[in-house]
Computed example of a mutant assay.
Amino acid sequence: MTLATKITASRLLAVPLLLYWLQSPTATEQWLALGIFLLAAGTDWLDGYVARRLNQVSDLGKFLDPLVDKLLVLAPLIALVELRVLPAWGVFLILARELAVAGWRVTPTLQAAGVPGANLWGKAKTGVQILAIALLLAPLPAPWPDIAQVSFWLAVVLTWVSGVVYLWPKSS
C-alpha cells in the first residue's frame, strides 16, 4: 500500500469519530467533530499531492479516494439529519447524485475509456460541501446557523450541477 493510499485510508478513520461525537453532541463534541472533519478533509488534497509527487497513483487509490470522500461527506450530513439540523430530502439529493456518479464510474464503457477526473464544477461542489458541513458542525451564534443553511443548499445545487456536467454526454 502506497503512502498516498494510507493517507486516503486514514481519512476513513475519521468517519466513526464524527458519528460518535455527533450522537448527542455537546458544544465541545461539536468542536471536536469539526476539527476531525477539517483534518480529514485536508488529507483529500494531501493524498492527491503525494500520489502525483511521488508517482504513487494506483488503481486502489483511484477507487478508494472518491469512495472515502463520499463517506466523509455523507456521514456528518446523515448525523445532522438525525439531529434535525437538515431535512432528509436535502441530504437525499446529495446522496442520489453521489450514487449516480459512482455507478456511472464503474460502467464497462467508461472503464474502457478511462474515468474522467474532477472538473471545476466537481471541485467547487467539494469545496462548498466542506464549507457547509464545517459551518453546520460548528456551534456558532446567530447569524452563522442561517449562513450554514444557505451554504448547505448551495452545496446541494452545486452537487447536482456538477453531476449533470459529469454525466452529460460529451460530443466528440
Results as ranks from 00 to 15, higher is better:
58 S>V: 01
126 T>W: 07
117 G>R: 09
65 D>R: 00
71 L>D: 13
61 G>S: 05
102 A>F: 13
125 K>N: 04
8 T>E: 13
147 I>C: 00
129 Q>M: 02
35 G>A: 08
100 A>C: 13
16 P>T: 12
38 L>K: 01
105 R>C: 09
102 A>C: 08
47 D>A: 04
86 L>C: 00
27 A>G: 04
36 I>E: 13
37 F>C: 02
138 A>T: 01
1 M>E: 12
156 V>I: 11
21 W>F: 14
132 A>Y: 10
72 L>S: 09
143 P>R: 07
119 N>M: 10
112 A>W: 08
131 L>E: 10
70 K>W: 12
54 L>M: 11
32 L>F: 11
50 V>M: 10
115 V>A: 12
65 D>T: 00
46 L>V: 14
68 V>D: 14
15 V>S: 09
6 K>N: 14
137 L>S: 01
75 A>Y: 14
148 A>Q: 06
132 A>F: 04
37 F>R: 07
113 A>M: 14
118 A>T: 07
49 Y>G: 01
1 M>C: 00
129 Q>T: 01
36 I>D: 12
67 L>D: 11
84 R>F: 01
2 T>P: 08
108 P>T: 00
118 A>S: 13
145 P>C: 10
2 T>G: 01
115 V>S: 08
50 V>L: 08
63 F>C: 00
41 A>F: 08
7 I>Q: 13
144 W>A: 08
160 W>S: 01
7 I>A: 03
128 V>P: 01
73 V>D: 09
28 T>Q: 14
29 E>S: 05
113 A>N: 11
139 P>F: 03
109 T>H: 15
80 L>I: 02
165 V>S: 05
139 P>Q: 06
105 R>V: 09
42 G>Q: 15
146 D>V: 00
52 R>T: 02
109 T>G: 07
113 A>P: 03
82 E>F: 11
72 L>D: 13
166 Y>K: 02
106 V>S: 10
155 A>E: 13
37 F>V: 02
59 D>S: 07
136 L>F: 05
39 L>G: 05
108 P>W: 06
29 E>M: 05
154 L>G: 11
32 L>R: 10
47 D>L: 08
57 V>A: 03
137 L>D: 07
56 Q>K: 01
41 A>T: 06
128 V>Y: 08
74 L>Y: 09
19 L>H: 10
147 I>P: 00
68 V>A: 10
172 S>N: 14
55 N>F: 02
92 F>E: 06
109 T>Y: 14
98 E>Y: 00
44 D>L: 04
136 L>H: 06
3 L>H: 11
116 P>Q: 14
64 L>R: 04
116 P>M: 09
12 L>R: 09
58 S>G: 00
42 G>K: 12
138 A>W: 10
118 A>M: 07
15 V>C: 03
100 A>P: 06
107 T>H: 10
172 S>I: 08
157 V>L: 14
1 M>V: 07
157 V>W: 12
63 F>S: 05
108 P>V: 00
124 A>E: 11
19 L>M: 15
